[in-house]
Computed example of a mutant assay.
Amino acid sequence: MSSTVSANVDGRTAVKLKAVASMENRSISNAVSSAITVFVGLPKGVRDFLLELNAQNDQDTINRLGREMMAAAARVRLEKATTDLASEHRFGGPEEVSREIDMLEEATALARAAAHRK
């Protein structure tokens, strides 16, 4: 069941909201709904920190945090995909992993030997 809520935002936020909705080919209502869903799902400390950064107009830190969050999200997605693939047993078992580790160790040894020859 959905509920209608109302919110007032400043002009700058309204312009940003319209731009985001347009870039993502979404309605303003859909963008607001998604933003609220994400915001209320965050721990209070994170919400407070993000609001503090916004109030301080600290765009550099907001951008840095965004990049770090994207990197963390990519790592989590990779780990999940790896776990999902491993659970399907499509790729080799422990002996396959052992061969891959042996190949990596051999490649490392060859690279070190080449570096010492220089």
Score class of each variant (00 low, 15 high):
residue 82 T to R: 08
residue 56 Q to W: 04
residue 118 K to A: 05
residue 7 A to H: 06
residue 28 I to E: 13
residue 15 V to K: 10
residue 39 F to Y: 15
residue 8 N to H: 10
residue 66 G to R: 02
residue 9 V to N: 04
residue 60 D to V: 14
residue 98 S to I: 02
residue 24 E to P: 00
residue 25 N to A: 15
residue 64 R to F: 03
residue 107 A to T: 08
residue 95 E to Y: 06
residue 73 A to V: 02
residue 85 L to D: 07
residue 32 V to H: 00
residue 112 R to S: 12
residue 66 G to S: 09
residue 92 G to P: 01
residue 79 E to S: 10
residue 25 N to Y: 06
residue 66 G to F: 01
residue 38 V to W: 01
residue 33 S to E: 04
residue 112 R to I: 12
residue 22 S to Y: 09
residue 17 L to R: 00
residue 83 T to L: 09
residue 49 F to H: 02
residue 33 S to T: 11
residue 84 D to C: 01
residue 82 T to Q: 11
residue 47 R to D: 02
residue 55 A to R: 05
residue 12 R to L: 10
residue 7 A to K: 10
residue 58 D to W: 03
residue 8 N to K: 06
residue 45 G to E: 10
residue 17 L to F: 03
residue 87 S to P: 00
residue 91 F to P: 00
residue 79 E to N: 11
residue 19 A to I: 04
residue 77 R to C: 01
residue 108 T to H: 09
residue 103 M to A: 15
residue 9 V to Q: 09
residue 18 K to P: 06
residue 59 Q to N: 15
residue 104 L to S: 03
residue 79 E to K: 10
residue 28 I to L: 15
residue 92 G to D: 11
residue 93 G to C: 05
residue 18 K to W: 09
residue 78 L to W: 01
residue 88 E to A: 15
residue 105 E to S: 07
residue 43 P to T: 01
residue 6 S to M: 09
residue 80 K to A: 14
residue 116 H to G: 10
residue 1 M to Y: 07
residue 99 R to S: 03
residue 4 T to K: 10
residue 100 E to K: 08
residue 96 E to H: 08
residue 37 T to S: 14
residue 66 G to K: 01
residue 92 G to H: 05
residue 11 G to I: 11
residue 30 N to S: 15
residue 113 A to T: 09
residue 110 L to F: 10
residue 55 A to C: 01
residue 63 N to T: 14
residue 105 E to N: 15
residue 7 A to R: 12
residue 90 R to S: 11
residue 4 T to V: 13
residue 118 K to M: 11
residue 1 M to H: 05
residue 117 R to T: 14
residue 112 R to N: 12
residue 22 S to P: 01
residue 51 L to H: 02
residue 20 V to T: 04
residue 4 T to E: 11
residue 48 D to L: 09
residue 7 A to F: 08
residue 23 M to W: 03
residue 75 R to N: 05
residue 61 T to A: 08
residue 83 T to K: 08
residue 6 S to N: 12
residue 46 V to Q: 02
residue 21 A to L: 03
residue 26 R to H: 04
residue 36 I to N: 02
residue 12 R to Q: 12
residue 19 A to E: 13
residue 80 K to N: 11
residue 3 S to A: 15
residue 51 L to V: 06
residue 76 V to C: 05
residue 67 R to K: 14
residue 8 N to T: 12
residue 96 E to Y: 12
residue 20 V to E: 01
residue 102 D to V: 07
residue 57 N to K: 13
residue 93 G to E: 05
residue 108 T to Y: 11
residue 54 N to C: 06
residue 73 A to G: 14
residue 63 N to M: 12
